[in-house]
Design a protein around this nucleic acid. Sequence first.
RNA 1: CGGGGCGUGGCGCAGCCCGGUAGCGCACCUGCUUUGGGAGCAGGGGGUCGGAGGUUCGAAUCCUCUCGCCCCGACCA
Length: 492
Amino acid sequence: MADICKRSDDYSRWYQDVIAQAELAEASPVRGCMVIRPNGYAIWESMQRQLDDRFKELGHVNAYFPLLIPKSFLAKEAEHVEGFAKECAIVTHTRLRSVVKDGKPSVEPDPASKLEEELIIRPTSETVIWNQYRKWIMSYRDLPILINQWANVMRWEMRTRLFLRTTEFLWQEGHTAHATAAEALEETLQMLECYRWFAEDIMAMPVIVGKKTERERFAGAQETFSIEAMMQDNKALQAGTSHDLGQNFAKAFDVKFQNAEGSQDYVWASSWGVSTRLIGGLIMCHSDDKGLVLPPKVAQRKVVIVPIWRKDEEKEMVVAKAAELRDMLKPVAGLVHIDDRDKMRPGWKYGEWERKGIPIRIELGPRDIAEDVCVLATRHDGEKITVPLAELTQAVEANLERIQSDLFAAALERRTKNTHKLDTWDEFTQLYKNEGGFAYCHHCGDRDCEESIQNETKVTIRNIPLTAEAEEGTCIKCGKPSHKRVLFAQSY
RNA sequence: CGGGGCGUGGCGCAGCCCGGUAGCGCACCUGCUUUGGGAGCAGGGGGUCGGAGGUUCGAAUCCUCUCGCCCCGACCA
């Protein structure tokens, strides 16, 4: 039981096994949609809370815009339609009627309820939001507007994978409006940095921060920036994006303001988002063949106590002691769970909490209590140490910090080991024929050249790192001159 | 949508080729003994084999269609 495929045998099978065994999510009756189970949702809540706090610190407020968008809205920004039209779900009727089909009772859309203007289920909310902004913005005094919304969106993708790409997903989308291009860009970069912070400091997932090429840009954006993380199969995962929208949406939705000098100008915009895809990244970044591994800062339950007993009297005593420890640990570990389920032996419980990724497990039995100690086991490295109860709080606190930094260090080391600087097409194709990874290479910047690389190798330019230094070279593919290296990888 | 694989109690599978109306492991329920790394014994409940049609005295097994899932591609956060 509890079989998790080894990463080395079949990575994507392993990924699915981890999700199933940790009870994070499962498929739904509708293809491509997922049911996020409590363990998975707890991760999302934890991410949501921390991001939301940060957004607010940076001056943003939350609002909510509707799920349904008039079809015509999507047609207002040319590139935007181009980008999303293929994957929009459309509402055409407002009610069903009962019918008998092949002798069986059934339902079908009532033809009488057909909508005059069909509605789109939002794939993203720029259009509805900008339609409202037109009403809210008159003067430069109304700017900036810094709104975020937590919502679900739908993109009818051909192929889905739990968390990484589902037809419906949860995300946050920030939509800001500014009086100047510089301010919009500043906001775009500020939120990009916020995402870097979240990925690295909270998720312990190192990322490369950079600018997307024209080809990979968000439909309707002037510039798109992303954070890219390396998964354990050496593929890249785009973990968050921040877009400088320029005046594209303001022009499409006619959002003008009067500036201090009295003249009219279109508003400058940014939008940025991260989604439940982050959970997929979290899994693929840290988990192992035993199951999920959660960084303490993301884990809702950071510590579980497994009491051990033989007789009922022992159970009472051990569980009471466990409750004491739980209360004692609250300031450093938050809510601590005591697994006092009967009918399950300790070994079983250890396995279960390992599959579920709880960072620290405390084992507490009569022998420990007699000696005023307990056993502290850390999930990520499997180490077990005996800790005097008097020192437990500090030990837990120190270990939570250690786990967090160990995970980041391990992920960074793995990325470093699998990152290369390549200068020849031969090395490039060899790398991606074999182990893959990140490759910093020169590229001419030509869209067709970029496309031909993808067609031949499935490798794309993930981004142009913000830290890329000027360096003369020649394009890895076509040999034309290049002035800096860009980040290549196969991606999810 | 193209290529490959697979649908049999909750989960994982066997049976299918050589038709005779279902079996194993785990899980579940009851009881007793257990409990420091996935406990043991005994008893027990649950499926008509993804769906539809066909061949046949008889179909999980053969044929046709269909739906769904997984993997590999094209599309994408």
